[in-house]
Amino acid sequence: MLELDSVTAGYERRAPVFHGASLTVAPGESVGLLGPSGCGKSTLARVAALLHRPDAGRLVLDGTEVRAWRHRAPRAQRTAVGVVFQQPRTAADPRLTLTELIAEPLRATGRRAEAADRVAALAPAVGLTPDLLGRRPHEVSDGQLQRACLARALTLRPRWLICDEMTAMLDASTTAALVAAVETYRAETGAGLLAVGHDRVLLNRWCDRTVDWKDCLTAAP
């Protein structure tokens, strides 16, 4: 289970972006979180990915309560959650080639030897051709870069996947292709999904259930 329980978070202690948000994703389940821009749903996604320490509330991941965030979190806990962000341009280190980008999590965790095989397996799964893999981010389109960012999130075979507005910048065909790649991965591994977005039609079609942001907010400020 991925359980967010009465989470309050923000970027200034005195003025949190939201108060008391709760949300649960069961293993293998896909949940769409629907909300207007600026409501704080992306911050909640960052909390769930252990990237942002909440001011209050709990995150329980597979029965273990998370007590440390970012670098302080145990590596196994951190890498159990894969993240895909809205803007591939800012989410990719401009100096790495797409191959290096996808292999980076393996190299960072000291499993360099597996990198070549894993990249070779992931690239076709997200629809990247070999000639694209040697290029750097500024030499590929947004859609192609987002495919690489999705592959990077899948590299360590996470049990949970968080897609924060993954397709907001993309055209219909690339959107459908990326969603299909996520669903294929989930069918193979049984991973849970939290998809954050503002497109109701898309999330309804994609996810098992869709939650409105205002229904997440249980506790009053």
């Binding site: 990237l51 951190r78 993240v83 989410a91 965790t109």
Partner: peptide
């Protein structure tokens, strides 16, 4: 930048980042 977030999420330590 989100790419630092992505590196942290991918298991990179402080030194590596």
């Amino acid at each position: 930048r989100p790419f630092i977030d992505a590196a942290v999420s991918g298991g990179a330590g402080r030194w590596r980042v």
